[in-house]
């Protein structure tokens, strides 16, 4: 049984007036059925663009210039737009940070959900309505019958995101890409939404890519994690391995930057410098300007190395047992 998703050598570049922005520059990962992968990074890392590339929502001046994205064995790069449209919202669904990117403000919730169902299935209106109502109940919306008749602006931010998630799950997709879905929400609502998304994935067996900058959220839900920096994956592996024994200096720095009970009152570890400008990346390792382990070797871009089920790109990783 092929993996739900296999991405290899993905490069998505944007041709801007100021130059070529290499938003995604050589990304590899695979996701098995039912797996949850956390895709972590800050601004300029390329994590969102990776998600958009998979679902085929890259518009000019952006383009997938190289690489392959295989969804259940089928190649998506270069596939005809019609095929992609067929898959979108059906077998592959996306949840955005702003639920208003999914919801049409002038249509009622039931209209939109029925539309989403009818676009991909041969289903009657009544049956569609029932299915939509049940899905709303599954994402924890109280009194779903009433909510069906509401317009998006009549719902709170958390409710809207739940509706967006419900729409994503309507056609029982095999892969869900969630791009910072809880970043704009309050902590208590965030907890609810993560719980519901987790639950739904477990029930339907869907695979989930959770894109975020928040390591703590990823720690709670992911099986595997990929850390992105300046368009490349700099570290990848099992969640416990990466968080407890990080290899790449960026991951170490990121983990050290998170305030927690352990360093109450002390200076936080800070990574020097700024997040990278993808229009002007340095030669060699993109992280070298900010890294305190930098040497002359870092003038050469590090290749992805695999050790003990972990992948990382670094000439001087933190592993003890890895001498590169």
């Amino acid at each position: 049984m092929p993996n739900t998703l296999e991405v290899s050598g993905l490069k998505t570049h944007f041709l801007m007036r100021a130059g070529v922005a290499k938003a995604v520059d050589g990304v590899d990962f695979s996701i098995a059925k039912g797996e949850v992968m956390g895709l972590v990074g800050e601004s300029g890392s390329g994590k969102s663009i990776t998600g958009f590339s998979i679902i085929g929502l890259i518009d000019p001046p952006g383009r997938i210039v190289e690489g392959s994205i295989k969804f259940q064995g089928e190649e998506l790069v270069g596939a005809p737009e019609e095929r992609l449209r067929n898959l979108r919202g059906n077998r592959i669904a996306m949840i955005f940070q702003d639920p208003m990117m999914t919801l049409n403000p002038v249509l009622r919730v039931d209209t939109q959900m029925i539309e989403a169902l009818k676009a991909h299935q041969d289903i009657g209106k009544k049956e569609a309505w029932t299915k939509a109502r049940d899905t709303l109940g599954m994402v924890g919306i109280p009194a779903p019958d009433e909510r069906m008749r509401a317009y998006p602006h009549q719902l709170s931010g958390g409710m809207r995101q739940r509706v967006a998630i419900a729409i994503a799950f309507l056609n029982e997709p095999d892969l869900i890409i969630a791009d910072e879905p809880t970043t704009a929400l309050d902590v208590t609502i965030q907890g609810q939404i993560i719980h519901e998304a987790q639950d739904l994935c477990r029930r339907t067996g869907a695979s989930l890519i959770w894109i975020t900058h928040d390591l703590a959220v990823v720690a709670g839900i992911a099986d595997n994690i990929s850390v992105m920096y300046a368009g490349k994956i700099v570290e990848q592996g099992n969640i416990d391995d990466v968080i407890d024994r990080p290899a790449h200096p960026y991951t170490v720095g990121l983990l050290g930057s998170v305030p927690s009970a352990n360093n109450r009152g002390q200076r936080l570890y800070q990574i020097a410098g700024m997040t990278p400008n993808i229009l002007a990346l340095p030669k060699g390792c993109s992280f070298k300007e900010r890294c305190d382990r930098r040497t002359k070797t870092c003038e050469v871009s590090p290749e992805a190395v695999e050790r003990n089920h972990r992948i990382f790109r670094c000439h001087h990783p933190y592993f003890e047992e890895v001498k590169v």
């Binding site: 944007f14 922005a21 938003a23 990074g41 800050e42 601004s43 300029g44 890392s45 390329g46 994590k47 969102s48 663009i49 400008n277 993808i278 229009l279």
Partner: peptide, 12 residues
């Protein structure tokens, strides 16, 4: 027209 991403290159 003020652009939303003016000054940043907000590609994530």
């Amino acid at each position: 027209n003020p652009r939303i991403s003016a000054g940043g290159g907000k590609a994530k």
